[in-house]
Design a protein around this nucleic acid. Structure first.
Lengths: 76, 76
DNA sequence: GCCATATGTAACACATGTTACTCTTTTAGA
DNA sequence: TCTAAAAGAGTAACATGTGTTACATATGGC
């Protein structure tokens, strides 16, 4: 599950550490979620969405990636 | 974290088992989440919200229950 | 009362999210 | 180039979500 955390974080001009503090998680959690290592729990997602003033759906790109097999190809 | 799963499930006239099948989890998971035993993962929440055609925020009542201490009192 | 259906629940195992600690790499600025 | 801030990442431990199985309870129709 991809997400737009990095983008909203940039918009709000926050470092991973600042964001982490604001939502009471560790920087590694922000880093890992941002990097797609795992999905956020629903309340971490909620806190981020609320902080950025967007919906969870806007923050996380679900896009039903369960069935597709050849997606998200970037040119490199 | 409270949620409105039971309500939307009633609106859509689904049993716990039917809902569970539709979102590919077990009835126990639906039952436990509905009963507040634990929070749904973000993709379970997403699947439910999508099925009911609502947002995750509409399905789950976050309401920042971390700080309040005397909420959700029903009359009984 | 009996039966079928829907729901609640318990114990354990397993999967996934989060932390603490530490280190490396990247990036930007003097 | 040197430096510091920011970000990426590995591991082990812990916390939380989910599955399995089985049984208990409630409810409504006969």
């Amino acid at each position: 599950m991809k997400n737009n955390i990095r983008i909203y974080r940039a918009i709000h001009n926050l470092t991973q550490e600042e964001l982490a503090r604001k939502i009471s998680v560790t920087r590694k959690t922000v880093n890992s979620i941002e990097g797609g290592k795992y999905n956020p729990s629903i309340d971490v997602a909620y806190k981020m969405a609320k902080l950025f003033n967007v919906t969870i759906e806007e923050l996380c790109c679900f896009e039903d990636e369960e069935n597709t097999g050849e997606n998200e190809k970037v040119d490199e």
